[in-house]
Amino acid sequence: MSAEQIAFKAPEIMIDRATHYCPGCHHGIAHRLVGEVLTEMGLVDDTLCVGSIGCSVFIYNYLNVDAVEAPHGRAPAVATGLKRSRKDKFVFTYQGDGDLASIGMAEIVHAANRGERISVVFVNNTVYGMTGGQMAPTTLIGQKTTTCPAGRCLDREGAPIRMSEIIGGLGGTAYCERASLDSVKNIRRAKKAIRKAFEVQQQGIGFGFVELLSGCPTNWRMDAVAANKRITEEMIPYFPLGVYKDVTAEGGCACTEHGTDSKEDK
């Protein structure tokens, strides 16, 4: 009798079902990394997930944790309220680039600036995926989409927004890193980045942010291999990988002048 052995198991937090994502989409990898990190950190029972609007609206179908659905762009505000009402729980949002960097720009910037003890996973694939591949705030110059058919033009549509550079420059951010899902090496590094962005919340030292450069072969009109190559050759040069802020490396806390500390002095 030949025994079949599964050598590569998903963590229990992952619900065992096929995803609705397109072939070659990186959301599946990102979900899996989040699930692995939550499991390794022992947070499965304590996690509250804030979903957003976009392809990843169904993240709650794949992660076995409590979840609430936020309106488009508002996940950081919803997470703020949720964390304030449940301070002992781990709260994270999972947002795409249309959601976070366009309609939700105010909410992400201010949640980070306040140093909300939440973590944000930002999936940047340079298009609005769910609605059919329209131009996103992160769409690269020259990139053709359904709403910039001639290619994004610097003059007309402005330059792609670099979110990690913005979030890394804010006072309440404790950890901010841009990683990529285009190669095994980068996926391993991305997992470490997610873990750091989650740890700063658990340490109570500020806002955690991780940007994941991801592929959208369907809307990019290419196959999965070509999509990975595009990340490597076109996205990474414009969106450099790396740590944009890490207060743990500086030996500090993002919020040393926070009101909660000064209140005790009164």
């Binding site: 509250l48 703020t80 304030r84 909410e107």
Partner: peptide, 20 residues
């Protein structure tokens, strides 16, 4: 929390309500 806008206030309210 003094929010950045009424849009954010109402969504913070949504989050806190979800937390009970």
């Amino acid at each position: 929390v003094q929010a950045e806008s009424e849009v954010a206030s109402a969504n913070m309210l949504l989050g806190a309500a979800a937390g009970g």
